[in-house]
Design a protein around this nucleic acid. Sequence first.
RNA 1: GUGGCUAUGGUGUAGUGGUUAACACAGCGGUUUGUGGUACCGUUAACUCGAGUUCAAUUCUCGAUAGCCACCCCA
Length: 508
Amino acid sequence: MARPKKKIDNKMDNKEKEIKKAKKAKKEILTVTGMRDLLPQDQKYWESVIKVGKKIANDYGYGKIDTPIVEYMDVFERGIGKQTDIVEKEMYTFIDQGGDELTLRPENTASVVRAYIQHGMINQTQPVKLYYYGPMFRHEKPQSGRYRQLYQFGFEAIGEISPALDAQLILMGWNILNDLGIESVIQVNSIGCTSCREEYKKALVKYYKSKGKDLCESCQKRLVKNPMRLLDCKEEGCEKLKIEAPQILDYLDEDCKKHFMKVIEYLDELDLPYVLNAQVVRGLDYYSKTIFEYWSADDSEGKTALGGGGRYDSLVGVLGGRQETPACGLSMGMDRIVAKLREKEIEVPEVYQPEVFVAQLGDAAKKKAFVMYEKLRRKGFKMSQAFYKDSLKAQLEIANKLKVKFTLIIGQKEIGEDTVLVRDMDGGIQEIVAYNKIENEMVKRMDKWRGEKLDKFTVDESDSSLPKPKKQKSDFGDFTSNEENDFEDKRSGKYDNMMDYGNDIDVY
RNA sequence: GUGGCUAUGGUGUAGUGGUUAACACAGCGGUUUGUGGUACCGUUAACUCGAGUUCAAUUCUCGAUAGCCACCCCA
């Protein structure tokens, strides 16, 4: 008796075919190339990165700033540099109805500096320390770890020249990765200030011109356009030439050299895993002196850097602020960090883990369950339900999938007796509790259960003091316990006004 | 932007120049309506799009699109 539909007659078949064709003719609507949806099941990774990033921001005194996603094209063209790939061919720029030339931000440093200037932040205590996270847009060819809408979490400290700042930012980025359970190696370099760079470029061009014939095609172009990039080339011939090429470090003036030495001293003091890497040359024009990248410990070529940053002492001036306003920044590639968390199978806390499920049977019970649900929810319990389902079986299935600890059942019998059935989902043991005592009973049970969980956690930690293997837990201890505190507070009535609820973690 | 590889239900995979495109997981429904995690049964759901070759194309060819990879660059 299979498929009676298809057994009818040819006319029907033809009709079906037509319908099918028509369906196909409607072109499926997809995301724009290189852009993607972050679905509910993806969110826990993003929220974890944001959580850790925010913690680091707070720990080092950075305040959050949100700048518009759209800016005047000028901000980036002047800020990032006209000759850079980003500005030359990767920006989403359009003319709006009012005739203004606007751009979707390809990165956020220029915007933050624009805000610094616009709001006269030069009059605040320097450095002004800001952090942000959100989407950036670059029209690149997508491949793994490369998207046209990409997310960055970044820090900018404007108005301070001390090398301690560089070192601290380097530390902060490393801390984010480390707190998430990702091993990384810092690649540091100094490209000096504008004047030493000019000297160096001359030397570089002179050196490469003397070897002109051995250069690959694209390097010939680089020689004229952007000699610093010669060092990035991976062609065999050019690779050989690199070995004897002049090193930027030899061309630093006294000041830049001293600055860089200081940064390195701090890194040594902090015992951070870093490598001096003269090949690291960042692609944005505004960088000067210290530049750095974070490479995953298992990525020796830095194919997909997890983050990077550096000093940009001239950017504020370039964008029309006071000349000689030094600054340093850092940005982490959230997409790549999330990919790494997944690749390494690093466990990350759930966005929301309900603990108590309310099930009901029958009309009267449903009403009572609604009320009880609200009572417990307002007490601060993490609740879940499926009031739109009628069968108990279906509700328990959902409770099971949600991995709740307890299910509270109200049916005809419980209505009559004015009780609630408390089911422990781990053992399936059920107990009858008087309806008016349910809140206290649940507080007691949850406390006990949380206590047991904590014990387990402590044991786990002592076990994982060694280098972390696969399937490890990331270092979230501090935050999760914060949440527990929240819970305590809510229950003791501090949050009874319910104002504190929204979850302010958004990736827009 | 340049080059290479790939494209089958929601997901992961089979398979074929011809009639009914297979399997697993997930989803939904059920195994006498008050009990989940296991089992069994049923059910929904796919050949990326367009053109060409052919009596016949999901299968072969070309193009488009998308994804992956490399270059370039970056996070």
